[in-house]
Design a protein around this nucleic acid. Structure first.
Lengths: 212, 212, 212, 212
DNA sequence: GATGAATGAGAGTTCATTCAT
DNA sequence: CATGAATGAACTCTCATTCAT
């Protein structure tokens, strides 16, 4: 057990240092991506900013592209955590839950236009990345679904379409905001666009009979 | 006059050949973009496929990027032509006009997933391209606006928001379809997604009082 | 004779026009060479400035380099004309004759630094051009020779070296000025450098006994 | 200390290898320049001859032009070293010192006609190179100056011009030789031309009155 | 584990020259 | 004669990736 302990200690320290370096590289890349798209950044730049040698980069990421994957994993994990702490089925207004999720993601994406564009570009170019992104979207849709089922029962949402449909379009609405932000309204905060967009499209989700 | 005529003939034939070559290059590029994103295509490939020398490419387009601009101009012109032949103010249902515009664009974009992605990537990377794209979107919004004004007066559309807002979101709805298509439903026809999406979001545009 | 006359008339006009175009091209090139070295000028630029098509350039000069040759021929012819009107053997001071020749050439070269450099570069790169340049230098040396023979007899010049040697170095002295001008004193007039240099080196030519 | 030593060893070997590669590239370029002017040599050729990859060239020299600069720096340093070991103020004959300097430079330049021409061409084309060349010339002039001051005092040199002037023209005399060699007497050893030229022009420097 | 020198395929671009019109 | 579209070899330079140290 003694040697084991020692080894695990050593390993622990090593692992910590390893993780630390890994993070430094990711951070360096993210910072650079605030200025220019991912494919205009060289590995050398990233390595320099992370204060490691160029070769070290490839010790942590097999290819340059893998770095983006790694970043996306982190982002996804982060969103998952946020989703898990939500309990849409217990919330009063499902619409409110949706709003919160979207605002949370928007607050993340909204930090860096260039980074968001870089990811978009990467998704356009890599099927693997698209796959991961889709999984995230579907996970989010699943989360929303429960809420919409509950909401439909309570009469909050329209009943002429399935709750799946409601959840589907609710989640995809975020894309509309993202595109407007990336292509047209670079200066506006993304969260603001989300707020306005949700407000506008709400009538497509809520039950109209309520007011009658 | 005789010599002039002769010369203009000669010029005419030359000019035709020139335009032909230009189109061959554009066509070659478009075909290649069906397979892979623009920035993974080399000028050499394009030239080879267009059956011209590499240098000839640069006779027609100062830079590789200019080719995309040129293509976008053509696309925009095409859409403009379509928009101009529309007379939204005389149409019965403005919603129907919107649907037609979006389906028209979707039928174009829908031809090639990779091409559409290439353009998206290019827009993410070039401010100039974004600018042109934005102008197109705004032009489309203007066209839609007239229809929505008329539609509001006739009671077709909700009146709690300005017609500008209606037009704005209506046009941007296309983006939502585009993203779903590009990222998730690569196999579905884009036009189909447009149909479904429009149908779903219609309640956010039409007046609710109608049914009462 | 009639047809002949007509033909020679026609030919005459044609030849004139041809020579005119040729000169326009040379002039255009010279003007451009005032700004940048010959090999940084494109045939297209020259053609544009001469207001002819690119292809026309090659109708008058087989290659781009030939243009320089042609220019040099003109320059040489010009200097020859100047040399021929001189009669060094009758002049009072041979040194004065030398001075005039060098100042004449300097006044020509001195007009454009870039052009002079271009010719130097061309001479470094083309054996043919060097050959022509050498012929010019030898011709000038021959001219000077007569003067120096006379000058030696009159006791104007030193007698411990052959008149050929005197002529040789006298003519080559110009090179020293050219180099100083091209490499160090770009802003000074070339003629001024020539004056000063000749004044300094005069003692190497004149007889020392004179002063006794 | 142990690891430091080891590391510095490693670094030392690496650095040696790096310098070695650098020299291989320079040497390769110089060899090629013996055959043809610098701007007719491609980086690929240089790399091939140096037995490195094309990309490696740019690891050592940012641009192709930089290679020439680097070479010139080496040449200049070499001449500086030679100048520094000279002590013109203690020499018997200043003229002899001048002769030695010029012969030393001539022995270097004289090795390769094409290389010397290449450098001349490069100097004609690059202001930066001219600047460096001028600095070298001025440094040499400064060295000569001290000798001429001493020589004037001893009565070795003429006194009707400043020692600066004597130094100036003495140094520039080398150019005359260079030009004659490059343009006319390609086959003669440069040093020989220098000897002859200095001998001829000596009277323009020494005091004439002394002997009488 | 970390380094950074070396790689080399490939990029976009230029331009003297040709030749069909 | 004049044109200018077409050519294509050659150019300099980039950068993700490898690997000996």
């Amino acid at each position: 057990m003694g040697p084991n302990v020692r080894q695990s200690h050593r390993t622990g320290r090593r692992e910590r240092r390893k993780e630390e370096t890994r993070q430094r590289i990711i951070t360096a890349a993210l910072e650079l991506m605030k200025d220019k798209p991912f494919d205009q950044i060289t590995v050398e730049e990233i390595a320099e900013r992370a204060d490691v040698a160029k070769g070290t980069f490839f010790l942590y990421f097999h290819t340059k592209e893998q770095l983006l994957h790694a970043y996306m994993e982190e982002m996804i994990e982060d969103v998952y955590e946020f989703l898990e702490q939500l309990h849409p089925e217990t919330a009063e207004s499902q619409w409110e839950v949706l709003r919160q999720v979207m605002l949370y993601i928007a607050s993340r994406d909204g930090l860096s236009l260039a980074l968001t564009r870089s990811i978009m570009v990467a998704c356009c170019q890599s099927a693997e990345l698209r796959q991961r992104m889709m999984e995230l979207v579907q996970e989010a849709t699943q989360h929303a679904l429960m809420g919409f089922i509950a909401g439909q029962q309570k009469g909050e949402f329209r009943r002429d379409v399935s709750p799946e449909t409601l959840a589907h379009y609710a989640v995809r609405l975020y894309r509309l905001c993202l595109m407007e932000w990336m292509m047209e309204k670079e200066d506006a905060p993304l969260t603001e666009l989300v707020e306005r967009t949700l407000a506008f499209f709400k009538p497509a989700f809520v039950a109209q009979e309520v007011e009658r």
